[in-house]
Structure formats: structure tokens, C-alpha cells
Write a protein that binds this DNA or RNA. Structure first.
Lengths: 117, 117
DNA sequence: TTGCCATTTCAACTTTATTTGAAATTCTTT
DNA sequence: AAAGAATTTCAAATAAAGTTGAAATGGCAA
């Protein structure tokens, strides 16, 4: 593994940390990678980020979110569902309305400095 | 704006924080939303996450990354480019090789607890 | 029950992202 | 200059994500 045709600089550092095998071993397992990437995918859209920011101020019903974002019902519903499936928001029925709010994960996420640009 | 047909709970909280207008005003501007969502999109793939994790250990040339990930050259190149365009990694030519490493943003990103699942 | 309102669901469609294999580029060695 | 290695680029194909408008659902009030 180490007597290979790669830059010395890389070869040395690689050797020092245990070689290719060690590098493979330190990667998160497939489940974790899937869940981290799914989380990022959920945040990878401006509409969804807006929703997260709004809900970080206070819980809101769909109709208010819709008024602020000014998008079609079905589109909003789609994005709410993406966030819900990602575990970042939850919706609670209240009569005719559904009030959405951040979950614990959603709060962690919105509070992270990666969300500031 | 406030004499509307929405849940009391929501209406009150909304009023307390300045109404729909205030809520609109506190959202990040379009540029910022675009850049945050672009960042998340770059992280929204297991292959790219693996690359980020590997580079957080040490800089690596493409051939070593390829050996660890065991994917086609062009596919790897595609993902490296996505990360590079997102500003998370940079590549430096060294003779026949290109050695990739994390940028400052890349380090911030990989160090964030959102990356732990 | 009838009708209305808030929201979701559905299927068709459009757009964007990813994969693939072949060809091109760039540097190095002979 | 020719040959070889590492990497990228390209275009065609596939897959996944997002959008749209219409129809369905479920609660509520008359």
C-alpha cells in the first residue's frame, strides 16, 4: 500500500496516520453518512431555509408561512414535508390549522454557525 | 394583517414580534440564502462527505482518494469539483498530481457538530 | 348534512444533479 | 519528440428533485 506512486508528502502523512486502511477505517459508516447527507439535502434550498428561519422565531401555521413566502399551497406543502421527513420540523393539528415548529434537531441546526453564510 | 383568520396562539406571538412584516424583515437576504443553501447542497452526498472527512485527516492526491473510495476517475473528479466550487476544498498541482486539502470554510464545516449525524 | 376552509396528495411535467465511458489536457520521463 | 501517468472535460444517458394545478381529505360551523 505504501510503496506506491504518490507524492512523498502524501505518502509520509498517510504512513504516519496508518495508511489507506486506517483512513478507510476512520470514515463514518454508511448509515451515518446517509443521515448527515440527508440532513444537508433538506437544508439545500432557499425556501426551506426561510421556513427554518421563520420557525426559529416562533411556531407558525401553514397559512401564515404561505403569506410570508408567497408561494403555492402545494409547493409549500412539499417543502414542509421535506423538512418534516428530515426531522427538522413537526406539525401539530389545531382544529382546521396545522401549526409547525422546529424540533430539537431543527433548533440545533438553525443555531449552528454554518447557517450564517 | 392581524385581524386575520389564524390560530390565536400564532396571532399573539406574531403580534408580539412585530407581525408578518417583521417576520419578513428578519429573513436573510436572497444572496445569503443562496450561499447557505449552496453550501448544504455540496454536503448533501455521501461521497462528498467521505472526501471531506478524509481531507480533514490530511491533504490527499486524487489517486489516493480514488483508491479509498473505489469509484471511477470522472465521477471522483465531478465530486471534487462540486466541493471546490462550493469553496470547501482546494487543489494544488504538484507535478503530475493534484493534492487536495480543506479550505478554511471546509475546516469550519467538518468541525461543526452538524456533521456528526 | 351541507358547504367551507386549511392543508395535503397526486400525477404529469420541468429542471437539476449524477453517472458513464471516451477523449482531451498537462506534466514527466525517456 | 514520443510515450505514459494523473487528472479533467465532454456529451449522452439516467436518476432525482422540484413545480404545477387539480382533486382529495378532514375539521368546523351553519
Amino acid at each position: 500500500m505504501e510503496g506506491r506512486d504518490i507524492p512523498e508528502e502524501v505518502a509520509e502523512a498517510l504512513l504516519a496516520c496508518g495508511g489507506v486502511e486506517a483512513m478507510e477505517g476512520c470514515l463514518p459508516d454508511a448509515d451515518r453518512l446517509a443521515s448527515v447527507s440527508a440532513f444537508h439535502r433538506a437544508c439545500a434550498d432557499p425556501v426551506r431555509l426561510k421556513i427554518l428561519f421563520m420557525l426559529s422565531q416562533q411556531p407558525l401555521c401553514v397559512c401564515v408561512i404561505k403569506e410570508i413566502l408567497d408561494i403555492a399551497d402545494s409547493k409549500l406543502s412539499y417543502h414542509l414535508n421535506v423538512l418534516k421527513k428530515a426531522g427538522l420540523i413537526k406539525g401539530e393539528s389545531q382544529g382546521n390549522w396545522i401549526i409547525y415548529s422546529l424540533t430539537g434537531d431543527g433548533k440545533t441546526c438553525i443555531g449552528c454557525k454554518l447557517m450564517d453564510g
